[in-house]
Design a protein around this nucleic acid. Sequence first.
RNA 1: GCGCCCGUAGCUCAAUUGGAUAGAGCACUCGCCUUCUAAGCGAGCGGUUGCAGGUUCGAACCCUGCCGGGCGCGCCA
Length: 585
Amino acid sequence: MKQQIAQLLESALQTLKEQEVIPADIAPSIQVENTRDKAHGDFATNLAMMLAKPAKTNPRALAQQLCDALPESNVIDKTEIAGPGFINFFVNDSAIYSVIGDVLEAGHEFGRQRVDTANRVQVEFVSANPTGPLHVGHGRGAAYGATVADLLQAAGVNVEREYYVNDAGRQMNILAVSVWLRYLENQGATLVFPANGYQGEYIKDIAADLASRCGDSLVRTIDEVFADIPADEPAGGDKELHIDALIERAQTLLVDDYMQVFNAGLESILADIREDLGEFGVEYQCWFSERSLTSSGDVDQALERLQQSGHLYEKEGNLWFRSTDYGDDKDRVVRRANGQTTYFASDIAYHMNKFERGFDKVINVWGADHHGYITRVKAAISALGYDPERLVVKLVQFAILYRGGERVQMSTRSGSFVTLRELRDEVGNDACRFFYVTRKADQHMDFDLDLAKSESKDNPVYYIQYAHARVCSVLRKLESEGMSWDEAAGLAALERLDTEAERDLVTALGKYPETLQNSAHNFEPHVLANYLRDLASDFHTYYNGHKVLIDDAQLRNARITLSVAVRQVLANGLQLLGVSAPEQM
RNA sequence: GCGCCCGUAGCUCAAUUGGAUAGAGCACUCGCCUUCUAAGCGAGCGGUUGCAGGUUCGAACCCUGCCGGGCGCGCCA
């Protein structure tokens, strides 16, 4: 519809150019927008205001000339000039109402675009370190990333979802030591658990599991383990030195068996994360291992490429990347004097790998606390010769939980953080998914647990689902009353839907496809969430004032047809948000 | 100190990316069940968009400077 109007305007523009009202050499981008207020018609353009200056006339006069030059159209009822020079378009009802037939014909495909396989986009999200269960902060990234990916797919993008598994590095070694020490306890040893170790109960479960698989083959005496280890923090020492020494000791004592312990921790936690996300409706096409970047040679290759192009230099034995060439605050070390590559080096290799895999665009969903990394990663991408615009980083702020009006305190240290699983158990997957994406991602959000759990109109999830269930209910009632619905008759009688509420509802349906597109391409799921709430509201208003199951068969068929179309759009939208559309509540 | 993000109704948030009179929900006040689910609907109340300038036909949005809040500034991950 917008395109049709834009074409009419284009034609009018040409006419005025020929009449030399408007200079021939300007080519404005014609903007047709939805009106905010229906008193302004259905669509509006600001064209006259944009052209008034070059045409050396006032906007309203030019608007009139544009209107006069508009070709005849069977879609437009009338145009009006309003405000400072807007041209408002009033579309005739049959054009507006045709969307109902479109919805019913397309069904669950309505609003979706066919996937263009040439346009490959990767969405990487969550990517939490596999050192413990996901918490509510990861949950928001999961809901956001999954929804963005689904939206893009619906918008016709060939999407691949990926989880970057940080299965290398010091944190993972700390996890391995934590598991091993709990295993030793499980095998009867008494020891003081390191302050910097992973304290959670889940470590004990992994240790017990390890014990049942390996028996006592991994047992070493406490004297061996702790001999000459520097004191831990509670004993007046340094917790970092303490844990690092324990890591080294574990590797020395266990030799090849160390990796068995290491992998026991990694695999168990990864399996848990995978299951957790699966239950949350989040699936990945690829779980990408950080370790694989080293074994495949990608890290070496990436550094080699940077070396070749002159972006690396050595200083004090360390190898540095000159990221300051690309606006970074300081240069960054990629390989330490001891030969170890840094985490950043892995990140460089990882992004090189992504582009080498042929993705046109790469979207990273990061916690907002990682924003400092954007500059250096983009710098590396540029230095490797890729267009940094092909990487889009979306930052997700943390959600603050409230229960009973009180902020739920969370801290990793005390182990009192709330896991995603606990949250899902408490409020349900539907409310979780919806609440997480109902606010802009880069905005702090307050997550009201009581509201998410409440089964009332205050809860937007229930509110939308209820609208869907209501239509289902009407259809059930229809059947039990022995009445029937004739879709063709309904479509033929749409002109009977002549009340204001009905026209509003149909207009809302017509906005679904573009809402979906905007929501997808701007990576803003909240736009769709808000739309669905508004659509549900329009339907509730309609439902309250219009009885559907009436004796007038023609009007009844038309109203059912409209209701079913609304149900379809609600279902389509909810599905994209990962929320169920119940038939009964 | 430097860098990034944010500041909108009493509260939680929108605002089609520069458009018309800044909108919803909650809270508060008042109405609506003999009707397909009241898990619903309607009406009212509520604003100097943190402050001050600037850019233009037009600013919550763009620019500058303040004020206030968050985060980041390791060879950690």
